[in-house]
Amino acid sequence: MVSVSQSSSNEPEVRRIAGCDVEISEAGSGRPILFLHPMIGLQGAEPVLAALAAHGRVVAPSHPGFGRSARPAGCDTVDDLAFFYLDLMDELDLREAVLVGCDIGGWIAAEIATRSTSRVSAVVLSGATGIRVGDRDVQDLADIFALPKAEVDRLSFHDAAHAALDIAAMSDAEVTALARNREATALYGWSPYMHNPKLRQRLHRIAVPALVLWGAQDGFAPPAYGRAYAEALPKGRYDAIENSGHYPHVEQPDIFAARIGAFLEAAGLSGRATTSNVRSAG
């Protein structure tokens, strides 16, 4: 069992969890908020992690294969990531946690919660991928692997300034993380493209309150996709954030955190104290 520091430091440290060396940032205290990052990793996420720390203890790992996190042999599907995070919640003894997942992180959150909500009190899915909505010849999600980078950036951000990266100013470790994020995204999301054909029919199992939080100008995963997600969740509610594309946690971090705070309060889950009971596995 790995003990968890309660410090508010945002510097990621590498810890061995479920047989995998993962980097984890932590901030705040109280109810655990497990932040599951998007395909761009934790790039641009510092402000939102700080803002979320006002609502609980933020635990923000890099998924195996992303950032500086290792990837164990055999971990090559989002299914594997979901089981990894079930193990992580056990090892860190996270109780009544709020899963906040963006993009592929939302997909992972949904996969976790369809398996067990024994350590989960609520789910927030932002720009979540993972389900198939349209007909066989309709693309639900823009194919980032078939589009020029400039077009991917345009679809992903309301304000293109957020997409700009100064590679020359980045350290080797940061550029390596960029390259690893891109490769890991393909590993987990190439085929079936960014979804699990079985996930949508399993979403009915997620009985905890769920907030589907979407960028109103998301050109990668259109708002209709988010609404379909919300409709498939028994306690799902759809909410849009203006002036944001696919990554509202980057473009509107304060609003993003405030909406989550309000959602938790409405669900009776606000407050910094963590209850001690762990519900039995569902």
Binding site: F145, A146, L147, P148, K149, R182, E183, A186, L187
Partner: peptide, 8 residues
């Protein structure tokens, strides 16, 4: 461009 260097 998107096909020149696929990830991985």
């Amino acid at each position: 461009e998107p096909y020149r260097n696929p990830p991985g």
